[in-house]
Amino acid sequence: MQLISTFENTVFLEIAVSMLEKEGINKENIFAVPLDNRMEERKVFDTLHRSDGISLIDIGMALATAFSVVGASVGFKLAWGPIYWGLIGAIVGFMLGFAIRLFTEIVLKKKRRLLKGKQAEVVLIIDCAVEKSELVENILWNHFALGVAKVK
């Protein structure tokens, strides 16, 4: 039976492997594969086939609403009237909100990703007897495995 699990690249992985060796699993039956980190930059703009779930227009829409209300209110006293000034306020508010969101995604979140230094995961494959599968699974879960799967 094979047990496949994923771990973050931490000391808990090393402890889990040493516990497995103490329980009688040979080194030849333990296979660890570190995954590579992403080398290319993430794309800011989504495509039709890929979306990261981050909206760039949420702040823009809120500011467009607020600026259009203020523009329409002030527009009663200005030459072009409330409709034109409301539309101008909406466009200015949207562009300002979009610029703010784009700045936070490109500059600030990039710095956070670099400072965080998240390492890639490690896939651990253990080949063991069926009798030891429960013990091996408990050891993996107790040492903070991200996920465990059994293959007979």
Rank of each mutant, 00 (worst) to 15 (best):
V136E: 01
M61I: 08
L35I: 14
A79Q: 10
Q2W: 05
A66Q: 05
V130P: 13
Y84N: 07
K118G: 07
G24K: 06
W80K: 13
A145K: 15
I106E: 05
Y84I: 13
I139A: 03
K22W: 07
A120E: 09
K111W: 15
A66V: 11
G147E: 05
K118S: 09
S5W: 00
E41G: 11
I4D: 03
E28A: 08
R42S: 13
I139Q: 01
S73M: 06
V130H: 15
V74G: 03
M95H: 02
S18E: 09
L78Y: 13
E14L: 05
F7P: 00
R112T: 10
T10D: 04
I54S: 14
I57L: 13
F98C: 08
S18K: 15
K43I: 08
F67C: 04
N9M: 03
L140R: 09
A99H: 02
Y84M: 10
R113M: 14
K132D: 14
S133C: 12
T10V: 03
Q2H: 11
V17I: 10
L146Q: 10
K132H: 12
S133N: 06
S18T: 08
D46N: 14
I91P: 03
D58G: 12
A149C: 11
I25N: 00
C128K: 00
L115A: 14
I91G: 09
V33D: 08
V136G: 01
V107A: 12
G81A: 07
N9R: 06
S68D: 03
L20H: 02
M95G: 06
S5K: 04
D46T: 11
P34T: 14
L63W: 01
S73G: 09
F31Y: 12
V44R: 03
K77T: 04
K150W: 12
F12T: 01
L102R: 10
A62H: 04
G93I: 00
A16I: 06
P82Y: 12
A32W: 01
M19V: 05
K150P: 01
A129W: 10
A66M: 08
V136W: 02
